[in-house]
């Protein structure tokens, strides 16, 4: 994982927290494409909340380690997969 990388959210991606679950919905798709609702798990929700166009990935990882009882290796693995998914759905870009 590139620790110095800074990521920005796509402003066309709306996120809301519903019953402790973060939901993402891209607005660039048409309303009848209901498959484009994405639900994030707890770690992913936390990462999403920390992406602000200013923090480096290394800082986000440190924050995650403070909140969750996990190892740096596990966080690396989880974040890598999650960020790849977010890039695929155009929810984030390098800032």
């Amino acid at each position: 994982m590139q620790e110095k990388l800074i990521l920005k959210k796509n402003p066309d991606m709306v996120s809301r927290v519903i019953d402790d679950e973060t939901i993402l919905m891209p607005l660039y798709k048409t309303s009848d494409e209901i498959n484009c609702i994405y639900a994030l798990n707890k770690v992913a929700s936390c990462v999403w909340g920390l992406i602000d166009g200013r923090r480096e990935l290394g800082e986000i990882k440190e924050e995650i380690l403070k909140v969750f009882d996990t190892t740096p290796k596990e966080v690396d693995k989880e974040m890598r997969g999650f960020l790849r998914d977010l890039k695929e759905i155009k929810a984030i870009k390098e800032g």
Binding site: V14, R16, I18, I23, M25, L27, S31, D32, I34, I37, A39
Partner: peptide, 21 residues
Amino acid sequence: PAFPQKYQKYNEFYLNLSREL
């Protein structure tokens, strides 16, 4: 029919967001 069963849970969120837009 436009809302598949597996997404019923998010129905309210979806409707509210549509209203906001």
